[in-house]
Simulated scan of single mutants.
Amino acid sequence: MSQNPEPQAPLPAAPSTPTPPPPGELMDPQAAFAELSTLVVGETPLSQVLARVAQLAQECVPGAEEVSVTLLENDRARSAAFTGSLAASLDERQYEGGFGPCIDAAQTGQVVRVDDTAAEDVYPDFAAVAARQGVRSSVSVGMPMPQRILGGINVYRFDTGVLDEDAVNTLQTFAAYAAVALANHSLYASSMALSANLQLAMQSRAVIEQAKGVLVASLHCTPEEAFSHLARQSQHANRKLRDIAAEIVARAGRG
């Protein structure tokens, strides 16, 4: 007689990526902060990290209609990510002139507001261009990054009214979390570069030691004298020591 199979426990659900909020609804800022703190760095290209930063800011900051991320490196500014072409265009106009809210926010780490593009006297050129494009106000917040790269997040609004104090506070907190994500990415890239350099150094050391061994045997000298011989050849030929060593090892191998 057949028996009914015992019921099995349901399989655990596969982990899923956070879903965007329904249209018209804002994402909980705490959820956005949590995602920023766990953004995968290293394997994820920086461009994708920054694109997600811009998207999250748009989804969790009340009144953020278009968002861009400014990076300043070696005094050169660029929009590394943006949620709309207008934000990128307005950023680029500021970069071309070397003056504007997004640049000043990134350089100083401060909040720079333009509450009315039709009556702005600090950034009149930017405001005039923005107003012609239908932008009513903007807020730029610097990211507190201790690296050689400076950054900021820029919010553009088309509707009347400005970001209120709570929204600006949310944007500032968001910028701090975003800065951590970017700093982690920068540290990872630096670590990978250091690892590659160390690996190259170890390879160079190995071939130099091999060349010293060849010279000790052929010149009947000490290891110290063999190294001095390598160093003199490197200086006279104006070539790297490891390249001279590699040639000596290669010649010995062919002999």
Rank of each mutant, 00 (worst) to 15 (best):
E73N: 14
V168N: 00
S138I: 05
P124L: 09
Y156Q: 03
R136M: 10
I103R: 09
D116S: 07
N154H: 11
G134V: 07
V122Y: 08
H185R: 11
Y156R: 01
F126V: 06
S89Q: 13
D91F: 09
G109K: 00
T170G: 00
A181C: 11
V122H: 11
G97T: 11
D125F: 07
L72V: 04
L163A: 13
A127Q: 13
F158P: 08
V180N: 12
A176Q: 12
Y123K: 03
G152Q: 03
Q110G: 03
Q133D: 10
S79V: 11
L150K: 15
A131Q: 15
D166N: 14
S140P: 03
G100Y: 11
A183P: 01
G142W: 00
A167H: 01
F158E: 07
E120F: 09
D125N: 12
G161F: 03
A179F: 05
E165C: 01
F126Y: 15
P146Q: 06
N74Q: 13
V168L: 01
M145P: 02
Q94M: 11
A175G: 07
S89G: 08
G109L: 03
P144K: 00
T170E: 00
A183E: 12
G84H: 12
A81Q: 06
G134K: 05
L150E: 02
F99P: 09
L171S: 03
A88T: 09
N184W: 04
L182H: 09
A118K: 10
V139F: 00
A130V: 04
R76P: 06
S85P: 11
V129W: 07
P146Y: 02
G161I: 04
F126E: 10
R136P: 05
P144H: 01
Y123V: 03
V139S: 02
R113K: 15
A80T: 03
A118S: 15
G161T: 05
D91R: 07
R132A: 15
V114K: 01
R113T: 13
V111D: 00
S140R: 04
I149Q: 09
D116M: 04
S85C: 04
Q147R: 12
L72I: 06
A175F: 00
R78N: 03
D125Y: 11
R148H: 15
V141L: 02
R113P: 13
G142I: 01
F174Y: 09
V135A: 03
G152P: 02
D91M: 10
R132W: 08
H185T: 12
A131P: 05
A77M: 05
A118F: 07
V111F: 01
A88G: 14
L182C: 14
N169G: 14
A105S: 13
Q147M: 12
D91N: 15
Q110D: 13
S140D: 08
A119E: 11
E92H: 14
I103Y: 10
T117D: 08
V168A: 00
G152N: 03
L71Q: 05
F82L: 06
V162D: 07
A183I: 10
A167K: 00
G97C: 06
